[in-house]
């Protein structure tokens, strides 16, 4: 049995007939096309087992890791596209440099007090920072974010950069808060529809554990806690 794979290649669409095998993945079909039908088909892949995050693409409009997306028997026509939010270099290869540009404004490096290299880390601190450090830079969350897709003018930093910033903030020795920087980078534009969380291949709860606490932290400066703080600061003055 053959399946029809439509690949968006630098603007034009080409359809290939690929023999189906049980437990076949999207990446396998692309490798078959590259080896047998179209040697110049360009796409990124590296580990092939969902660890490196290189092979992200859109399958039938949904951003996925192509090495983890299995082709089931009733899928006769499959449409593969590059991640829509990035400019295409060739075929399925995109240029995600805008993400790094935005990330550079968030101080994505260790900003703590470096001691002699040894410190005690407690379990709850591990739990807190571990989840955000599972990110594999696949940009699926960034691609599935509708604010990024439809509202480029607002300058939203994107879920991936929030995850990176929260990961740095949750380091036990960190003594610099990235919350004001994230506020400037438009965290308020996220309207918590959880598209990023739903599509994340590493199952990071981006909305629940990164964005919502951040939003709460930002408005604390204005809300009830902010009012108490302002009264306290006035007292201290």
């Amino acid at each position: 049995m053959n399946i029809q794979i439509t690949v968006k290649r630098s603007g034009e669409e080409k359809t290939y007939s690929v023999p189906y095998a049980p437990r076949m993945r999207i990446l396998d079909s692309l490798l078959f096309i590259q080896e047998n039908l179209e040697p110049d088909l360009a796409f990124r892949w590296n580990c092939g087992e969902g660890v490196c995050g290189s092979c992200a693409g859109e399958v039938d409009g949904k951003p996925v890791l192509m090495c983890k997306a299995e082709i089931v028997e009733n899928m006769q026509n499959i449409r593969i596209e590059p991640l829509k939010v990035f400019p295409v270099i060739k075929d399925l290869v995109t240029n995600p440099s805008e993400v790094y540009e935005k990330l550079s404004r968030l101080k994505p490096y260790f900003t703590g007090k470096e001691g002699d290299g040894f410190f005690t880390i407690y379990e709850r601190e591990v739990r807190k920072s571990q989840e955000m450090r599972k990110c594999i830079d696949c940009f699926i969350c960034y691609d599935s974010c509708h604010v990024i897709r439809n509202h480029t003018k607002v300058g939203f930093t994107g879920p991936i950069n929030i995850v990176k910033a929260v990961a740095q903030d949750s380091h036990p020795q960190n003594n610099f808060s990235r919350t004001p920087l994230l506020e400037k980078e438009g965290v308020k534009f996220c309207n918590v529809t959880r598209c990023c969380t739903q599509n994340c291949p590493q199952n990071i709860k981006i909305t629940e554990n990164a964005i919502i606490p951040l939003k709460e932290k930002i408005i604390s400066d204005i809300g009830i806690i902010g009012i108490i703080k302002s009264f306290r600061s006035k007292k201290n003055e």
């Binding site: 509708h146 897709r149 480029t152 309207n191 529809t193 930002i218 408005i219």
Partner: peptide, 17 residues
Amino acid sequence: SPSACALQDSKTYKGDR
């Protein structure tokens, strides 16, 4: 969603704070 969540045009959308 995800392609059309409840956002207005980018000129008027000011976030959900």
